[in-house]
Write a protein that binds this DNA or RNA. Structure first.
Lengths: 218, 218, 218, 218
DNA sequence: AATGAATGAGCCTTCATTCAT
DNA sequence: CATGAATGAAGGCTCATTCAT
């Protein structure tokens, strides 16, 4: 996909790309199954049964099982990284949409948490399968390093220059920020999804942690 | 397994449990294959070929494919958590083996990093498959919550009382500490294993980060 | 199966339950093979080849090899015992359809011989395998003891009261009658099927034998 | 085998042909297993386990699984038909060992019943497997038709000439006699072996039946 | 003589995919 | 479009048999 096409895809935030009822049922069933048993351990026949369609119908819409996987994962991941991708993203930051790094963090964290809440099964599939399918890695790798990553970098450098955050390599800052947020989100959904979580409070604590650590000294 | 049996297993730190040459080759081939393609997508015939044995030979040693998986993962995971499990672990901390929480962190991080360096393929299999196999979760779940987790908690509370670290719930402190360390280790091996890493320096930065965050204020 | 369902099955005397052409070929090939080599020694691949279908096709129609066995044996056995099962069976006897016990014997013998002639391969499978598969025994055991056996018993008692036959336990009378008939049918088909048999004459001799023995005295 | 060799085998009525302890255990385990699950469905590994020997040991004594089968069945069947085989058998009958056909029947029935009681598992294997293995049929076929059968025939003709029994073909008389006896023995051991049987009385009834039928008329 | 690890052919079954209807 | 019967390759696993020890 060219960048131009990506933008088209990414901006298209409505879920209702015209897909037939059967197609939707197939996707739902596939998400369910892949998420629960993993891609390789899921059979198309099981998915067909769960979707209430004939086995052949799946292959009418998706030439192969792998294409079905991509049809599930690709648009969701696209939407997941879309906000970091849009042209205005970095600009907003510099133009005082976010006065401080922690405002930025807070917003991103809330934002993405909301997204994960809505799309966890698909994201789980992505996380599980990315290690095994080049088709899942490649399209985002370039996208990520050339756009998302670069934008983050600029933002971090921006706040480093403002003296708000220390001058570790931006990659390191990014990694630590991301790890802290992901380190909440992942167990929250993967291990303790039925636990009651006060996300707002937790995010606040995470942001605090990222900024000031656990020593209590400022 | 009873706790007593666990201790026996965990303490048995020598890799040379008497296994035949063929058996070792099977395990190596299986680690290779599972790690690369995932458990479900790996075929026993492929493993056999890679190990240079007949397919039947695998099943002579491991009744089922899943048993082979467990034979690979179980002892490594056992050894991975063993240090946190031994009786003296918490005691050492209290008796000033570690004067400060960051000393403790540093040691654990170094320590486990070393382990991961040695056993990453197996750990990758574990991470990938734990979501799909109860047999992989169950044996460690109790062990973890009742021993490892409890010990960490005591340690954290110990340093909280000393006023070294803030009084967030110990679970939260733990999660943040762990996330920060894992957030380094995972990409280090999973995504950028061929990159040159100065682990010593990175660990230092992580510990700093955990203690004081990225704001630069103390 | 409930008794009601049994009746449905048993009465359904037409062989043309809608089965596809391939399905019929599979059944024929399976009967051939099971009958010739026994169930355990027959391979599904051989059956598939003989039937001219892919091996997978067998399993599309019959979930397991054992289900295939049952699909072959069950309906035939059902039809075999059906005549003794129908409501009117005993009644016909009492209402002078059969004036004497030997009339009754003659009819049953002729009747079942005809059936065996038509279905010997399947019956052979049944005889061979009944010892090893509960699924083959169970459905008929109750049916036999509660219906067939009871009806025979009544018939025998009927003729005992008429003074036509001696007052041994009906079970014994039954056993002797059955053994004499089976003792003809079994070798006739199992050992000397290519021999020319005058069934009508043989049956007459058997009935005579059952009634009067071999001493020649009346 | 030549007839001469047969005689040697048949006469050797002692079970203690010198076989090692292990060998005996193998035979016992094999009888158990074959009898319970059938030859084809029994695995040598299961037999080895049950016998408490290594798998290889079985094949040291019996080159193939089939040879093991024959080693079990052959001597028992030989012993089973031995009495009808010995030179004096027919002579005894003519020389008034048995004054009447029913004396003869009674003795044979008692005699063979006793044998079956002792060797039922092996006989069951024989019955089950004879249909599938030429090696089980061939050696006895000639033996049976040329010796046993002929002797029986003479005996029957002897009593026919004495006017004791009717002049049906001797084969028929034989078949009826045998069927009546087998028709008792088979269900007795195969279906109702735990039932309490008064064999003496039953045999008497069978002999009566064979001689005079069930009509009660003489 | 006895072992038991090793073999590789073959087993039953499942799977993704195709195609005539 | 949708179906579902059909495919045949591949899967995990078992088996009788061999052979070095």
């Amino acid at each position: 996909m060219s960048d131009q096409e990506w933008i088209t895809v990414l901006m298209n935030d409505n879920d209702d790309t015209v897909i037939s009822d059967k197609q939707r049922k197939i996707l739902e069933a596939a998400i369910d199954t892949f998420s629960e048993k993993g891609y390789a351990a899921s059979s198309t026949s099981e998915i067909a049964k769960k979707a209430g369609v004939a086995e052949g119908t799946i292959f009418r819409h998706y030439k192969t099982k792998k294409e079905l996987l991509l049809a599930i994962v690709t648009p969701t991941i696209a939407k997941f990284i879309a906000p970091f991708f849009i042209k205005t993203f970095a600009k907003e930051v510099f133009e005082n949409e976010y006065e401080h790094y922690d405002d930025f963090l807070r917003t991103v964290a809330r934002n993405r948490l909301e997204f994960v809440k809505k799309h966890f099964p698909v994201l789980k599939i992505f996380i599980q399968e990315i290690a095994f399918h080049d088709e899942l890695r490649e399209p985002y790798q370039k996208l990520f390093t050339e756009h998302v990553f670069l934008k983050f970098k600029k933002i971090i450098e921006h706040f480093q220059e403002k003296g708000e955050i220390i001058k570790l390599p931006p990659e390191t800052i990014m990694r630590m920020s991301a790890a802290s947020i992901i380190g909440y989100i992942l167990p929250r959904f993967l291990l303790f999804s039925n636990h009651e979580w006060d996300d707002e409070k937790e995010i606040e604590q995470i942001v605090e942690f990222i900024m000031y650590g656990i020593s209590g000294k400022r």
